[in-house]
Amino acid sequence: MNDLSQASLNAFQLLFSGNDDLWEVISLSFGVSFSAILIATPFALVIAFILAFFQFPFRRTLISLFNTFMSVPAVIIGLTLYLILSRSGPLGDLRLLFTSKAMVIGQIMLSFPLLVAMAHASFQSADRRAWETAITLGAAPSRAFFTLMYEVRFGLIAAIVAGFGRVVAEIGCSMMVGGNILHSTRNIPTAIALETSKGEFAQGIALGMVLLVLSLSLNAGVSIFQGKGELQA
């Protein structure tokens, strides 16, 4: 118990004394996850919109597919991506394995189904009249799309925040395709696992606190935005 409280105290010191290694890990985590969400979101929004507003064959199947893929465990995605990116894999020549780019790709794969499914639900809840009104008032389809996104913005923001929350905290995929290399692919979750296994509890707790605060605030953010969306309706 004494050890633990001492470790926690040290954790605070580490965080606020500006320990370089610690903050490098934190900024890498953010960088990778932001990039992944930034790349995934535009595609996910367009797909979600098309799924919600147009009729075409296999639409239902696609929707259930995205919903199903939401629950694929991160390590499975990590494993798949590992096999694809490894030397003998189909994309082995790209030499991406154990780079932060591989982590970004993994997190894109991880967040994509969630983004599509949640954005689809938002667009589904949007009023068809919003789209028709924009069109009849002379908006080009692209502008009508932006208008519609604005109308359901709270739901969409909730989707993006939830997507970020999922990837920033996941460990399985980052560990497999990133490899937890210091100064290069070590992010918060993989660092926590490593430091703790080495007995460096202070480091682990410090990062754990950052991640916990982040996850809690992201989750709070999701429900706040979803609540706003409901008030709107």
Binding site: A130, G138, Q232
Partner: peptide, 16 residues
């Protein structure tokens, strides 16, 4: 026709 004709819904939709 979309350029010259405007349709108004029974319950009009006003943007947020």
């Amino acid at each position: 026709i979309q350029k010259d004709i405007i349709y108004l819904h029974q319950q009009p939709y006003l943007f947020d």
